[in-house]
Amino acid sequence: MTANSPPRPTLAPVIFILVLGALLPFLLQSGFHMRLAMLIWIYAILSMGFNLLYGYTGQISLGQPAFYAIGAYGFAMLQVKLGWGPVPSFIGTLVVCAVVAVLIGLPLLRLRTHYLAMATLAFMLIQHGIANRWIGFTGGQSGIAIVPLQWGGETIGRTGLYFVVLGMAAAVLLLHDFLVRSHVGRAMQAIRDDETAAAALGVHVVKYKLRILVLSAVIAGVAGVCFTLTSLRVDPSLSEFHVLVSMLTIVVVGGLGTRFGPILGSVVVVLLPQVLTGFGELETIVYGAFILVFLLFLPHGLSSLIERRDFLAAFKARKPAGTGKEAAE
């Protein structure tokens, strides 16, 4: 009889987060607060995709905002230009994201990390250029407007829209959580930590990288669709560096490669500027200082406070440990 294996992580925290999310509309009074809540979920979706790709698989792709924009534009354009309904437009948009990700991923995955970062950044700039300059196609600076979502002939109100966004976020959260706790998540982390050792154990490294790149692109597309659903228009501002910086801040503040980092990080990144408006012109500086202080004291992100093992490790890491060094030799 062998010893019992350690307890497995449960779904409980996921359910807790979703219940909290479902209660929010009854707790928040103003429409402004509801908009912030939806924005948190949208950023959380985007960042979960990035977390799978970078946090868990170690692939630095900066193309996520571009897929976010393709999701947002695609959803609007399929409705406005082709007259498709919202559901076919949603599906069609995700298919476009997946196909573009495959086309980019095939050659890129042979390149080393920094080239992947640069090439995906270039892809983002190209996408941005198209959105801005190809006015006949994308509406240029003024963008494209869509009609609000309907249900049974009636426009869905703010609360209904919130639940649509929450539903998308729930689906992505469940997917994210399932993957990272499964053999797929183990393979992803193995690739991140040591590609050669992963391959020697039978992990098809290139195939996994491509799969996760495509999946994260589709998830970014879902976030983009949610953006269009809530703002009712798309314009080039959504693909600007702002989205990229927010996404990077979220995963770092929340904790890279952690189960709930993207959600915790999104709460901070969306709400912090609201709290800081009192600082007026100094807001940006205070915001930056806050993030810096945060990174100094919580280098493993907010998740490290919640995911016990990380928390303990963070403390142990402060003690001078000899054993780790020998192993790294």
Binding site: H183, Q189, D194, T196, A197, L201, G202, G257
Partner: peptide, 17 residues
């Protein structure tokens, strides 16, 4: 060459991937 982000058990589980 063990995977530093995974626990001891998870490392061994990868052997069964």
């Amino acid at each position: 060459r063990l995977f530093r982000g995974l626990s001891v058990l998870e490392n061994v589980m990868l052997g069964l991937h």
